[in-house]
């Protein structure tokens, strides 16, 4: 079980959190013309890197905040966690 440092609450065990996928995915702006390909990329396609992955986690059994985690997908090492408006 991972130990994740919520930027608001501090270190907690993984069972307080839920995973939210790639943090770099940007939803196309509402009302914007989007090609099929762009939309397909946004809805379905995700990278599956071996190594550092910047991803979203949600502190569901805590402060209910979404935040960013930089995690190694191979070793599970967590390099950093940040609030959404902060840069890694």
């Amino acid at each position: 079980m991972l130990e994740i440092k919520c930027p608001y609450c501090g270190k907690r065990s993984q069972n307080e959190f839920s995973y939210g996928g790639d943090a770099n995915v940007k939803r196309p702006a509402l009302g914007k013309e989007v090609s099929d390909k762009e939309w397909d990329n946004f809805v379905y396609l995700r990278k599956n890197p071996r190594g550092n992955h910047s991803e979203l986690w949600h502190h569901v059994a805590g402060c209910r905040k979404w935040f960013k985690v930089s995690r190694d997908t191979l070793t599970h090492e967590i390099y950093n966690t940040e609030k959404l408006n902060e840069e890694f």
Partner: peptide, 13 residues
């Protein structure tokens, strides 16, 4: 609730 929180915090802060 998690869905709404996602859009409010991540997509349209």
């Amino acid at each position: 609730l998690a869905h709404l929180e996602y859009y409010l915090q991540v997509v349209w802060p």
